[in-house]
Design a binder for these strands. Structure first.
Lengths: 259, 259
DNA sequence: CCAAAAGTGTTACCTTTACACCCATGT
DNA sequence: ACATGGGTGTAAAGGTAACACTTTTGG
């Protein structure tokens, strides 16, 4: 990876000017050694959302090592040299929860110069949605603890994780209205009341039951099952499932999900 | 920046397990030397949009150096070690156009292992909106040429820039409906017909003149000026300007821009 | 039989869409 | 005077929002 200056200039689009200076002499004084350009650290951090039937929760780890030892933090890790970003994010989640192929979307990249005390480490942040039923707590060896946290009860997190988390929540709120994300947080089979409670939790506002049902059923991608839920309810509730094939078909025809 | 293994383990959240293995022996064989984690290159690439009154254009440079010599590419550059991401993006744009404080938004980070032939280089992509009136073409020394391109007439770009550009366009289309971005592409004073043409170009569909005006004027953040535009038109057209103060005030009160 | 959650329609209101002609100016 | 782009209102249709009672079960 180490290359000499000549290769650098020919091999990368390094700008040699900070200002309007144009003469070769001026350019020379702005040259920066190549090795400085391959000194970036890279991590991924995951904002992992779950839904307990009542509230949206975020999965945090308690750091067992410095820096920020014993602070709560978003689960994350450095990216391996031969690993794609998505792959790294999936690996973090699999190590933490045992779940493969978690639903994830990139949020944003955080790159402040001083965001990590040990050097220049960028982090690519991801939103991850998991079904809590499938989740089996497992603290990684570098963490003292793993726990679900309610959004309203968060203290100071490690690094710039408060900022990252806030951005993740913001994106979730926006995306949940334009994409069928909600289903990733519920059991595969769910009742309409569960679905409504989920949307109310994410959006932070109550929804009208009849209007909600009219709208969501009118979209024609929920399948009524031959089963009812009897636990946790008095009158048994009709179970539904999300038909992704049908959804994809509809969207390709120009249909637009919007709650 | 270089640290030994012990510091690595204590100083960063490096996961030592790829799989479910837990014993210390198994862990050991997955250890990766620290220096590998600070070998990432980092660049920013800008999708620079302009509007010529008719079509949306993208500013591309023709690369003067390998790799991809003489391919068209998004303007971009490696990030300096002591420079924030936004700062790097602004620098690229200032070098290219002479404009400071360009309106920019992060699009996404592209990090495929093999996206850059010379090593592991991530790129953080930005959308930039500029007023073409202010732009004065200026090829950087590492570029043979700089030119506005129509979106429908693009060939194969360097690196993964076709993919990045497509993502930038997609984001622009979404955001222009939820945020008052359009005004960044027009002169400070503009006519409603110019504004409408802009939206039609971005969204790729014709809009009804009367409905468009009703809606946009109803939002109450356009200020009618005491001036008319007489060039390029028969009947002089009323000029308006975007009142950002008013807009911010409205949004803080719960108003929601949506076209 | 009572408590608790499930389920179900109608109406008023607001937003969106469709649509056609007159106006001011330059040539 | 005419060609060109600027400017204006209304009505029908569709979508959203408000609202209350009956049903089914477990205890």
């Amino acid at each position: 990876m180490r290359r000499d200056l000549d290769e650098l200039i020919n091999g990368n689009s390094v700008a040699l000017r900070y200002s309007d200076d144009n003469s070769p002499d001026d350019q020379a004084k702005y040259l920066i050694p190549l090795e400085d350009f391959f000194q970036f650290g890279l991590s991924v951090d995951c904002v992992v959302f779950g839904f307990d039937g009542q509230d949206i929760k975020v999965l945090l780890i308690k750091r067992g090592v410095a820096p920020y030892k014993s602070y709560w933090a978003l689960p994350g890790d450095l990216v391996y040299p031969q690993e794609d970003l998505n792959g790294a994010a999936q690996r973090v989640l699999e190590n933490l929860t045992g779940i493969r192929e978690v639903f994830m979307q990139q949020i944003k990249t955080f790159g402040k110069v001083d965001r990590h005390p040990l050097g220049r480490v960028l982090t690519v942040a991801y939103n991850a949605l998991i079904r809590v039923e499938n989740y089996e707590p497992r603290a990684a060896f570098w963490a003292d603890n793993v726990q679900w946290h309610t959004l309203s009860e968060l203290g100071d997190l490690a690094f710039d994780h408060n900022e990252i988390l806030a951005k993740g929540v913001e994106k979730l709120k926006v995306r949940v209205r334009n994409q069928p994300l909600g289903f990733e947080l519920l059991p595969v089979n769910f009742t309409l009341n569960q679905l409504q409670k989920l949307y109310e939790a994410v959006l932070g506002q109550p929804l009208d039951k009849r209007n909600f049902r009219k709208k969501i059923l009118g979209m024609n991608f929920l399948v009524k099952l031959d089963a009812k839920q009897t636990k946790d309810t008095r009158r048994p509730a009709q179970l539904y499932t999300f038909d992704r094939m049908r959804y994809d078909e509809l969207t390709h025809r120009g249909f637009n999900f919007e709650l």
